[in-house]
Design a protein around this nucleic acid. Structure first.
Lengths: 253, 253
DNA sequence: AATCCATATTTGTATGATAATTCGGCCACA
DNA sequence: TGTGGCCGAATTATCATACAAATATGGATT
């Protein structure tokens, strides 16, 4: 613990289970995403962070480098570190997305996600129908089978995620893959109420099967339609949402 | 320069003009994106990098943290740093995209980009028509005016980029903003031949104007159609491409 | 053959020192 | 009065060294 002077130390208990520099990055990242430090603001300097967290400068700098690499910060000599404008944030980075979700209204989150999903997933399904390799088709099929075995319930979330990610991979376009993280986050967190709140749980499996079949026989149009249909169902599920929203809101640092 | 033993030092001249740790990150990043180190491969350890680049461990570690934050690496004690699977790479990160382009076939790059643009940009235009604020509309308009003033030619690239980015911002969906980087890269690099190779340069301005007008009067359907039309033009422009492709291919490390 | 343990390797963290950059004010000069 | 350059201070950038922590690996033990 390098620089002198005392200061309020901040608890990092919330981010336990990883390296110290990673905990710092998480803590600072959360603060940026939650608006404690707005775009354009100058952050405390390295010595300050050392005091705040009781960590060495080496560690602090590694945390700052991590955030810089994610587009949240930019450091300049004699100035310090300044928060970058939102357009530069790598929101589809796994960490950044998690920090974002922790301080965002879940309703807004799902609205934004569904908006994008309805744009992309039908086209992803269409591309998958055309571009899929046999191996990729097998991955999609296996995920679907696992989903069917699990029926509805907590166990069906993982295969569901795998299904959508396998579909995404089968589209075979690098610039679409970053969305996997968003889809994963959405499906995982959505479960809390889809399971209890789904007005038509019986349609869950058949709708997925519709996509699978279309992709299998290479029918892009049908795949697109099936994917959109599933998403429309999801929209309806989310409709009865606000009551449970609060539970998803995680604490900040 | 910390650890002992001599080794082949690597030139970083190519990445001049920035911090040392940034140069290292660029050099290593390029090597990963170009396949020198494939997913799953173990990289040289920190001491090795120190010897290779003649830098201190502190600096090497900051470079590694940068790459880790972009999803290219993961470090574990006693193991070293392993290249992550491609799905985890933040391809829409500005740096990662640049490294990717440096080692990718430009033809493939434009194909992939256009595929995604044709999915997203029409919907972005449609959303912008609905969600734009007056301020955002002004930004789009100003970019368009600058584009018109510049006519075709090198000077029209910057306003063209601004136009598309302003449109993107006006869609008002956080999860779409990461594509700004891709659009920017595509438009910027595409210019080398659109200017000389555009079969219908006269349509360039009117097509953009079509989008602007539709967005201005809040007509989502028209905006979607206009955006798609522009992209179809771009496709045709790219068609006469391969002859000049080589020029875009940048050297690797 | 299976289990446990010591050891070596590699990353993780701390400390202190020096270099490089550059903002902002001061001063000389026109 | 303005303008340009110089200087000092604040902050990040880099280096060197030391020790801590984690863990894969092989060898000892049962």
């Amino acid at each position: 613990m390098n620089p002198g002077k005392s200061s309020h130390k901040v608890s990092l208990a919330k981010f336990a289970g990883s390296n110290l520099h990673r905990k710092l990055a998480q803590s600072i990242g959360n603060q940026i995403l939650s608006g404690v430090y707005a775009p354009g603001a100058i952050l405390p300097n390295e010595a300050d962070w050392c005091r705040i967290y009781g960590a060495s400068r080496t560690t602090v700098r590694e945390a700052v480098k991590t955030l810089t690499a994610k587009g949240l910060l930019k450091s300049r000599t004699k100035i310090g570190s300044r928060v970058e404008p939102r357009e530069n944030w790598n929101i589809l980075d796994r960490d950044v997305l998690a920090w974002h979700m922790a301080s965002m209204n879940p309703q807004e989150f799902f609205n934004s996600v569904q908006e994008v999903r309805k744009i992309l997933e039908p086209e992803i399904a269409a591309l998958a129908a055309i571009n899929r390799t046999p191996q990729q088709l097998r991955a999609i099929t296996e995920a679907f089978e696992d989903m069917r075995k699990a029926k509805a319930g907590l166990n069906s979330v993982a295969p569901d995620v795998r299904f959508h990610l396998a579909l995404l991979a089968a589209a075979n376009n690098v610039f679409l893959t970053p969305f996997g993280i968003m889809i994963e986050a959405a499906l995982t967190n959505m479960f809390e109420f889809t399971s209890t709140n789904n007005p038509e749980p019986d349609m869950f499996i058949p709708k997925h099967e519709g996509i699978l079949k279309a992709v299998k026989r290479g029918n892009a149009r049908a795949a697109r339609k099936a994917a959109l249909s599933l998403l429309t169902d999801t929209d309806h599920t989310i409709a009865g949402f606000p009551a449970k929203a609060k539970k998803l809101k995680k604490a900040r640092d």
